[in-house]
Write a protein that binds this DNA or RNA. Sequence first.
DNA 1: CGTACTTTTGAATCGCATCAAATCTGGTGG
DNA 2: CCACCAGATTTGATGCGATTCAAAAGTACG
Lengths: 207, 207
Amino acid sequence: MHSTRVLLQSIPEGLRRQASAVHLAQDSCLFRVGDHVRAAFLVLSGEVRLARIGFQGVEVTLQRSRGGFIAEASLDSKVYHCDAVATAASDLLAFPAEAFKRSLTEDSAFSRRWQSILANEVRKLRAQCERLCLRTAEERIVHYIEAEGVAGVIELQIAKKAWATELGLTHEALYRALRRLQAAGTLAVSGRRLELLAARSEQPQTD
Amino acid sequence: MHSTRVLLQSIPEGLRRQASAVHLAQDSCLFRVGDHVRAAFLVLSGEVRLARIGFQGVEVTLQRSRGGFIAEASLDSKVYHCDAVATAASDLLAFPAEAFKRSLTEDSAFSRRWQSILANEVRKLRAQCERLCLRTAEERIVHYIEAEGVAGVIELQIAKKAWATELGLTHEALYRALRRLQAAGTLAVSGRRLELLAARSEQPQTD
DNA sequence: CGTACTTTTGAATCGCATCAAATCTGGTGG
DNA sequence: CCACCAGATTTGATGCGATTCAAAAGTACG
């Protein structure tokens, strides 16, 4: 994933050496409700889903990770409150929980870095929530490019199909909306590069 | 707000004493793009919206806060990258940015507490993103109660109208979905108390 | 007792999900 | 090189559910 490398570099050398690689086959399980929290996990590739069987027997998905840390908040807890299952074959790194927490306490540079990582994640997630509250596919696309891109340009790091999921849309709806935006002259698409085009003062009488 | 009191209690005494109260009239501005970051803000009441004028002149909302910290990630930055405007008359607390950052560095208890607060916020936001990706109002309601409540029961801290916004629905759609769930015997509503009822093994032949 | 707000219901419309299927793409092995 | 496969990408037709607009009833508060 895009930012996974950066995350890995934020981890102090000593802690990184204690990491062990974990490979998950599709549909295999990383941990279950009630398991002791023994490690902090970083998803390198694939997809891991956190879910819980609800009161009603309905499964509730709490997170879908395609890169980055999962269940960070569980570090404060003794046991997990949800299941983690690989939606696709995945590679992860496991950092021993105790060592991780010790680093956070004793290594002040890592502590600040970790706060910065979390605050940044919070910022991104809040923007995503706002985006998902928009009603049309076109608005979500524009919002995404404005919020995650630079100066109206973004190079997607994922396939459009996966992007559709992140936007809370079916891939069909995304493709159609992209086409409409291109037809309207609002957006230029070339492969995974998306560019918003400046509005050509077509406003009907703004005098 | 619900958790605002808890957040306030997490802040060390010395830092809390340096806080100044800020009142914002509706539509008044807290800060603008380019302003120097001088304080960390905690929203006590009302609503503050973070937004940015996008490349296209379209305004993009990045966050809508009805309680809790806003723009935490900006503490790492010298200037703001978005505008903050009060959507309603609001009360906030302003903590001097330098003192806040110093506390995070020097007060290890506060540092850990802050990490815990951020990790918890991340967890909640991820669940909210998953919830907003659900297609029907009923699914979002059940997901909310399962994820945010305890044993299928939740006492709403906000009016249903505000809850609708958080669920990415109009209030009409929410009321109608609540009614359908009650009619189906899935949910009991009394005022702001919502309770999921155990599924009455009405499964059509699960043998 | 009046005002502002939430809660509730109704009818028409719009946009996305769904199902179906064709095309295109990159990578594999013969 | 070509055949082939598993994906992603693209287009079409249909139905459903939420939005939208409108309005009434309930509720809290000064």
